[in-house]
């Protein structure tokens, strides 16, 4: 039982680390050719880097039929857009001060972040 308990505690530790403590440093810089795929429960890439203090455009390509995937919301920027299925949809972002700006679907199951640098 001792080993099972130890494994259980290790599993809890892993959950805490993996979902809350781990901080990815990889962010993909936005380009004209970059499409953010909305597929199978995630935005890919999840972390997008843009130039701070200048307007930018994100291209979304939704291939996920789930209704939740049909909307992308940038709560801090008061932007919400319907994403058509299997078509690229461009979302214009205003010039942003340096910082991180979350975006997500309506239920917040799909999550991504725009990093203005």
């Amino acid at each position: 039982m001792f080993i099972i308990n130890l494994l259980g505690i290790a599993l809890i530790g892993f959950i805490v680390w993996w979902f809350w403590l781990y901080r990815s440093k990889d962010a993909v810089a936005v380009t004209e050719n970059l499409s953010i795929r909305v597929e199978n429960g995630v935005y890919q890439p999840t972390r997008i880097e843009i130039q701070a203090n200048q307007a930018s455009t994100l291209h979304f390509l939704r291939v996920d039929e789930t209704p939740c995937a049909g909307q992308v919301i940038f709560p801090d920027l008061e932007i919400s857009e319907d994403l058509p299925l299997n078509k690229v949809f461009s979302v214009e972002l205003p010039a942003l001060a340096p910082g991180e700006y979350d975006f997500h679907c309506q239920m917040q199951m799909y999550r991504g972040v725009v990093i203005a640098k």
């Binding site: 781990y22 990815s24 597929e39 429960g41 995630v42 890919q44």
Partner: peptide, 12 residues
């Protein structure tokens, strides 16, 4: 969906 979320350090 679960696997993709897991790889991205998120859960739903």
């Amino acid at each position: 969906g679960a696997w993709n979320s897991f790889r991205n350090h998120s859960a739903n």
